[in-house]
Design a protein around this nucleic acid. Structure first.
Ligand code: MN
Ligand code: MN
Ligand code: MN
Ligand code: MN
Lengths: 229, 229
DNA sequence: TATAAAAGTTAGATTAGTCTAACAATAATG
DNA sequence: CATTATTGTTAGACTAATCTAACTTTTATA
């Protein structure tokens, strides 16, 4: 049985290697900063995870997941996202409140519990932030996704997910009317100061690249990421 | 914020001092055996709980709860029993499966979560084993209860709760048809070998004092513990 | 009440997870 | 390619929670 800490490391490694889509391996310092620990601590832990055959790793090298490590990490993420969905859909939490509570609930080890919860929720595909929920084998289809910062000017698109789950970010989105399913158009992109004017519904709002790079969208006409509409 | 371990100690002290109704204080060895640790370990922990002002305690003395210790212990029990109710009523777990999972869920620290869950469940008064659920202040009315072993022969009574939550015990009760709400009559009590013949519904079953002392009942006519029916 | 039994404590060790400070290897850059 | 910057490791210390083994206090009983 994995400890809280081990599960959190696996989850962080999954985020870096599978979800962020930059590389399939991650450095110790990067991991340390994600987990808010010092590099020395992460270095130690990575060696422990290697001994348990959950990661591939050599001294001074990068970290990547073994089959088993990936499966277990994905299961933590499944639990996290199912609980977020429960809190949001059943207990009427707002989308900025669910993450923190799910950080605790995700460590409850009962496969039966998660399967029953999944059934109770009607086998949801996505969590309240639009992220896909892995199945009970820890499998998931990771879609190639586009952010608002990559969308061409004038093309209507639909918000499908958000990358950042912080309270500040989500409340900001609420204020400007940007929710999952909303239609947005990049009205103008100012090269000089990198600000983007976004039409959300009827209203235009000027936003930073920090926002546009954290909002995932698909084509508003065909619903695909890559399209020729 | 309390650790898992500290919460488990508080819960165990509540059980011994408030629920078992023998004394309002408990010994270190007794605590140790309840928590499956060695006396040395419990002795250490009790001193830590004292430093946090959660228990009253002097070297070589007995342990009892402070106001704060009692409140926090009762809140752990509230969470445990609300989760058991959720697992049983909403996710269709059987009454012998809920305890183990609740042992993990009870340590999730979110008052809002528990209040919302309470609301979702319709403010239940009792958990699947018939135990009362403390309110959000950690308060509860502890009823004076009678077990089957104390009931007089021939008097019909109603099962209101079970003391033991072990899988073995609860499955055994299922097999002999003894559920919460069932009507039972002590048909005969054999002094020699302390076995009791119990009429449950239409069927007679011979049971041990281990069973009769773990089943709580009220008078079948008036619904009270002490009555003159 | 003296002795034995039970209950409780202390000392010292261990493991997980963390830190700081000093050091070493690798990568980037002039 | 030599120097610097970045990245990662090691050594040594700390806390929480546990153990074993030896010791002490309290309680029971002959
Ligand atoms: Mn989340
Ligand atoms: Mn999410
Ligand atoms: Mn229980
Ligand atoms: Mn219960």
């Amino acid at each position: 049985m994995l400890s809280f800490t081990e599960e959190n490391y696996l989850k962080a490694i999954v985020q870096h290697t599978l979800f962020d889509g930059i590389s399939d391996e991650v450095g110790v310092n990067q991991l340390a900063s994600t987990l808010n620990v010092k590099p020395a601590t992460a270095s130690d832990m990575v060696r422990r995870l290697k001994k348990k055959e959950l990661v591939h790793y050599e001294r001074y090298g990068k970290v990547s997941l073994t089959k088993q490590g990936q499966r277990l990490g994905m299961l933590v993420i499944r639990r996290h996202r199912l609980w977020e969905t429960f809190l949001y859909s059943t207990l009427n939490f707002s989308w900025d409140e669910v993450h923190e509570v799910a950080e605790e609930l995700e460590h409850v080890h009962s496969g039966k519990l998660m399967d029953r919860l999944d059934e109770f929720l009607g086998y949801p595909e996505f969590d309240p932030h639009g992220e896909a929920i892995p199945n009970c084998e820890g499998e998931i289809k990771i879609p190639f996704r586009m952010t608002v910062s990559e969308m061409s000017v004038g093309k209507p698109c639909k918000v499908i997910a958000v990358r950042d789950e912080s309270v500040d970010f989500l409340r900001y989105l609420d204020r400007i009317g940007l929710a999952i399913g909303a239609t947005v158009v990049v009205v103008h992109r100012e090269e000089y100061d990198e600000l983007t004017t976004l039409r959300i519904g009827e209203k235009d709002t000027v936003v930073s690249p920090k926002l546009t790079s954290n909002v995932y969208v698909v084509c508003g006409s065909c619903g695909k990421t890559k399209c020729s509409c």
